[in-house]
Write a protein that binds this DNA or RNA. Structure first.
Lengths: 218, 218
DNA sequence: GTTAGCATGTAAGGAGTTACATGATTTT
DNA sequence: AAAATCATGTAACTCCTTACATGCTAAC
C-alpha cells in the first residue's frame, strides 16, 4: 500500500500537514518560506501531489469548520458560504496512514535523505526524526560533501593546463562553500552527539531539543 | 537551424570543446572536475547530447590522427582494427556552426544564465563572454538572490508561531549562504566595473582579465 | 586470466516546470 | 467595475538519471 512515489515533495507536504491542516495555496507558501533558500515548488507539482496523496489515503479533506472562531487567517464571511458543500478552499489533513508514511520517510537514512535536493527538506523536519537517524543523515551528508571535495581536489591537482581566472574563482568559491557546509555539519554532529550522551539529564529541564549552543557572533 | 534544445549540458559541452577536442568519456570527467561542486552529469545525458549536437552539425568527429607518434594514450592495435573505420574513441571538435551557437549561448543574459542550475556553467566560460554580458549575468544573479532573501525574510517576519530549533538553524544557515554569495557577487561586479573603466590602461599590460584582486587571507 | 577502468551507448522513466485555463474573493 | 490576489487544477514538456548492455584495454 502507498506506492512510494519518490520525490521530496511528498515528504514536504506530509511534514507540513503534520503540524497543522492546510490548503494547497497556503501550503505552498509555507513550503517556499521554509525552504526558499534551497528550492521552490510550483503549483503544477503541488496539486498533482496532493491528489495522489489523497488517492493513496495518506491525506484527507478536512470538513469545513462551522464553529471555528479565528480559523486560519480570514474571517469565514458568515452566511455567504455557497449552498453546495463546494468550497473554494480545500483543507487537507494527515490521516493515520499518512502519519505512518511520514514516519517511514523520516526514518530513511540514505542518499535520498542527504543529497542536495532532499537534505534541506529532511532537515526541516528533524524535529520529528529520531536522534539516531538524524545523526546518520548528518554524517551521510558530510561524507557526501567530502567525497565531492576529494574528487574535485584530486582532479584539480591532476590538471596540467593552468586555468583562467574565472574558472579558478569558481573553483575557489565552490570549494569554500562546500567546506563551510562541512564545518556547519561538524558542529551539528557534535551537538547531536553531546545530546545523545545526556539526553535530558540537565537540571532545569530543557523544553525541547536545542541543538544550537547559542552562538552570538560568527 | 539548430533547434535550440535548452539545457546547460549543451553549453557545457560546446564550451569545453571550444578549448580542445575531446571524446565523451574524457569530456565528462573534465566537466565534473570543473563543476563538481555544483552539479554532475551522467553518461546517460552526455552521449545523447553529443549525438544531437552531431546531428545538428554543431560538432564533428575528429578523424583519428594517423601520423601522431604518441597519439592520445593508446596504441592503435595495428592490423586488428575492424574493417570499417570504427574506432573505440570518438573525438569530437567544434564546427564553425558550433562556435556560432556557443557565442549565441554565451551572449544570452537572462534567467537561463543566472538560475541555480545554469549560473555555474555560464560563469565557468566567462572567459569567452563579452564583458557587458558578464556584468549583466552577475547582476541578474545577484538580484535573483536578493529576491529570494526578501521573500524568505518577509515570510519569516510574518510567521506567528515560533519555529523549532532545527527549522531555525536551517533558516540561519540558508540565509547566511545566500548572503555570502551576494557578497561574492558584489566583489566580482566591482572588479568587472573597474575593469570596464580602464580596460587595459595600466602600465605593465596585464596578460588577461584578472578579476580577483589578490586576496591572500579570508 | 581475471578484475578494474576506459569507452560508448540505449530505454525507460522520474521529478519536476511552464504555460494555460478557470473561477472566487478582496481591494482600489 | 477593474485589478490584484487567492485558489485550484491540467497537459505538455524538459532535462536529466538509473539501470542496463556491450566491448576494449591495462594492470595485477
Amino acid at each position: 500500500m502507498a506506492v512510494s512515489r519518490g520525490g521530496v515533495l511528498e515528504l514536504a507536504v506530509l511534514g507540513s500537514l503534520h503540524e497543522t491542516p492546510l490548503h494547497g495555496y497556503e501550503l505552498r507558501k509555507r513550503l517556499n518560506a521554509l525552504l526558499g533558500m534551497f528550492r521552490a515548488f510550483s503549483y503544477g507539482s503541488l496539486y498533482p501531489c496532493l491528489r495522489q496523496l489523497l488517492a493513496d489515503g495518506l491525506i484527507a479533506e478536512e470538513p469545513p469548520e462551522e464553529r471555528g472562531p479565528c480559523a486560519t487567517t480570514q474571517s469565514p464571511r458568515e452566511g455567504t458560504l455557497p449552498l453546495t458543500g463546494r468550497r473554494s478552499k480545500i483543507v487537507y489533513k494527515l490521516t493515520a496512514e499518512g502519519k505512518e508514511r511520514l514516519q517511514d520517510l523520516l526514518t530513511q537514512a540514505g542518499p535520498s535523505a542527504w543529497e542536495d535536493e532532499s537534505f534541506g527538506v529532511h532537515f526541516a523536519f528533524f524535529r520529528h526524526t529520531e536522534a539516531e537517524v538524524r545523526l546518520r543523515i548528518l554524517e551521510g551528508r558530510r561524507s557526501r560533501l567530502e567525497e565531492r571535495l576529494d574528487g574535485v581536489r584530486t582532479a584539480l591537482a591532476r590538471t596540467r593546463e593552468r586555468l583562467d581566472s574565472y574558472t579558478l574563482e569558481l573553483q575557489r568559491h565552490g570549494l569554500e562553500s562546500v567546506e563551510r557546509e562541512v564545518r556547519w555539519l561538524n558542529e551539528l554532529i557534535d551537538t547531536e552527539r553531546a545530546q545523545a550522551v545526556r539526553p535530558r539529564t540537565d537540571r532545569a529541564e530543557a523544553q525541547d531539543a536545542e541543538p544550537v549552543p547559542d552562538k552570538t557572533n560568527e
